[in-house]
């Protein structure tokens, strides 16, 4: 694996949030390592509040990591200042969960799209108009939306606009932060297919964040499963589909059969209280003593559990 083959690589990212009233800082994510190759999709699965979105923002440096490095095509982004990072923002973009709030509600759609295009290209106004029309037709929208305010459009339309805005500056790496979560059932599949098409067409590296393992499975080449701020399983999708080893991943595959409790762990493995393996094996000591590390069990398959052989 050469450096140029990788679009983005994160090593040992840690982030804690400290509130004013909390004595202890809140753990957002711990020991996050990932890498995405050119044109590939990495799916990030987990419950809400487990730090998925934080990982996405850390990769874009919208928030500062406490420690760790983010390499974008070999350039260490964490060493750059915010001002120096701005030229690189052309290359990585984000599609937001609530697209309707990611557009300025007092701006017409056309102006919102124009803003970013104007920043990175030297097109004349007429050319910009043509370019925007092209983008709009690429995401299957009619030109009528351009004269509207965002509040007057439906959820699916705004999501398409968000994708169009992302496409407009032709990034190499895109983070899609739960893009399907707030949409209607019949619209979800439209958007998912659109994302897949565009990703293959422009060979974009995609980080697809979702809480639905099934949709992630459809769209991505690699999957990592996150629980309470840590990666518990990470691997190629074909491998995970056949042999998911961590109890949490197995739970996500069929949530009706295996129960999960609400209790928080006091120490040791983060998944201990809800783990069915822990109960099955008769509450072994090792689980309450140490947090298992992400270890490569077989080729392209990493699992963080004491009992996986």
């Amino acid at each position: 694996m050469t450096v140029s083959d990788e679009t983005i690589r994160a090593e040992g990212l840690y982030k804690y949030f400290s509130g004013k009233n909390q004595k202890q800082p809140i753990k957002a994510c711990e020991d996050v390592n990932l890498s995405i190759k050119r044109g590939k999709t990495l799916g990030l699965v987990g419950e809400s509040g487990c730090g998925k979105t934080t990982v996405g923002r850390l990769l874009l440096r919208l928030i500062e990591p406490d420690s760790g490095t983010v390499l974008f095509q070999g350039i260490d982004l964490t060493l750059l200042k915010q001002r120096e990072i701005r030229p690189f923002r052309k290359h990585f973009q984000m599609i937001f969960q609530e697209s309707s709030s990611a557009f300025n509600p007092r701006m017409k759609v056309y102006d919102s799209l124009k803003e970013s295009i104007k920043l990175y290209t030297q097109l004349r106004p007429k050319e910009i108009k043509e370019y925007i029309n092209l983008l709009i037709s690429r995401v299957n929208l009619s030109r009528g939306v351009l004269d509207n305010f965002v509040g007057n459009l439906s959820g699916g339309e705004v999501k398409r606009l968000d994708i169009a805005r992302t496409l407009s500056i032709e990034p190499a790496f895109v983070i899609a932060d739960e893009p399907l979560a707030l949409l209607d059932m019949s619209i979800q599949s439209q958007i998912a297919n659109l994302l897949l098409d565009i990703q293959q067409e422009k060979s974009i590296s995609l980080l697809f964040i979702s809480h639905d393992l099934r949709i992630v499975e459809m769209l991505s080449h690699w999957v990592c499963v996150m629980y309470s701020g840590r990666f518990v399983e990470y691997g190629r999708i074909s491998v995970i589909r056949e042999r998911s080893l961590h109890p949490y991943t197995r739970y996500l595959w069929n949530p009706m059969e295996l129960g999960v409790s609400d209790r928080l762990p006091e120490g040791g493995c983060i998944y201990k209280p809800s783990c069915y393996l822990y109960q099955k094996r008769g509450f072994p000591l090792i689980c309450s003593e140490s947090q298992p590390l992400l270890i490569e069990q077989e080729k392209d398959h990493f699992v963080a559990c004491h009992f996986v052989k």
């Binding site: 919208l62 030229p87 973009q93 990611a102 803003e115 805005r165 500056i169």
Partner: peptide, 17 residues
């Protein structure tokens, strides 16, 4: 705190803009 300001930052618009 609004999401669209964050979106502007992610797009790389300058703070002055």
């Amino acid at each position: 705190e609004q999401r669209f300001i964050e979106a502007c930052r992610a797009l790389g618009l300058s703070k002055r803009h």
